[in-house]
Amino acid sequence: MDGTLFQTDNILELALDDAFEKLRSMKYWTGETPIAAYREIMGAPLPKVWETLLPEHSMEVREQTDAYFLERLIENIKLGKGALYPNVKETFEYLTSNDYSIYIASNGLTAYLQAIVDYYHLDHWVTETFSIQQIDSLNKSDLVKTIKENYNIQKGVVVGDRLSDINAAKDNGFLAIGCNFDFAQVDELVHADVVINELLELKTVLSR
């Protein structure tokens, strides 16, 4: 979802600023909001995000921050402050009209993912959305394996912007398509089977 279908940048800084402003008001944080540090780990499960951004803070503070951050993200989505990447719906329409099934496998939390799906009516094309919350290991490869087994998928493609997506494809015997979008990193994309710069390129890649 993030960095592949949804332009998280549009709401990320707003929600992160809100979360760290609350920490500052509670005397748990001084200084600027660590936007740059978050960008480096974008796509990681949120528990790992807070371990990184708040290494000296208690689990209770991390959990409170996580809950408030999620609340602010969802509110911003509902207010229409987010955006899909260009041609998401057009690409989905092409895929479903050519008998592809679409599943979302994300490190985002269930409520957050559902807010995006609902606001943009993605369930018109997407068969099911899966959250890392459903997997005890918090491992994207295990999440994709769950989808593969639940739907008895023999051939598939994983499209994503981070190494966890590429590894999830390869660990499950699927084609790995890397998205050279906002949060992508060159040293990770080199492991993909194919790299695209825009979602509509999937039409050409898959037709091969």
Rank of each mutant, 00 (worst) to 15 (best):
A67W: 06
D17V: 07
V190T: 11
V194I: 14
Q7I: 08
K203D: 01
R162D: 08
L143Q: 10
F92R: 05
D99S: 06
D182N: 14
L109W: 09
L206R: 03
N139R: 14
L175G: 00
S207W: 03
I104V: 15
K170S: 04
T146L: 11
M42T: 09
S106N: 10
F92K: 07
E71F: 08
I166F: 07
H57K: 15
L143K: 11
A168H: 05
F181M: 06
A44S: 10
L16V: 09
D123Q: 15
E90P: 05
A19W: 11
V126I: 09
E75R: 08
R62V: 12
T96F: 01
A176I: 10
D118P: 09
K140V: 13
T204K: 10
P86H: 04
T8H: 03
N150S: 14
N87I: 01
L163E: 04
G160R: 02
Q114I: 07
F6L: 08
L73V: 08
L46M: 13
A67G: 04
L54R: 09
E60T: 11
Q154W: 00
D161Y: 03
Y112R: 06
N76W: 05
H124I: 12
W50R: 11
L138R: 02
T30Q: 09
N10G: 08
G160W: 00
C179G: 07
F92G: 00
F130I: 05
S137W: 05
E149V: 11
H121F: 00
I104Y: 01
S97T: 12
T33R: 11
F69P: 00
Q7R: 12
N139D: 14
A192F: 06
E188R: 04
I135T: 09
D165L: 01
T4V: 06
S25Y: 04
Y112K: 06
D193A: 12
D66C: 12
S97W: 01
N76F: 08
V159F: 02
L5Y: 04
A192Q: 05
D2Q: 13
K48V: 13
R162K: 14
R24W: 09
A169F: 02
N150K: 15
Y38V: 02
C179M: 04
N107H: 05
Q185A: 06
P86V: 02
L46Y: 08
L95K: 06
Y112T: 01
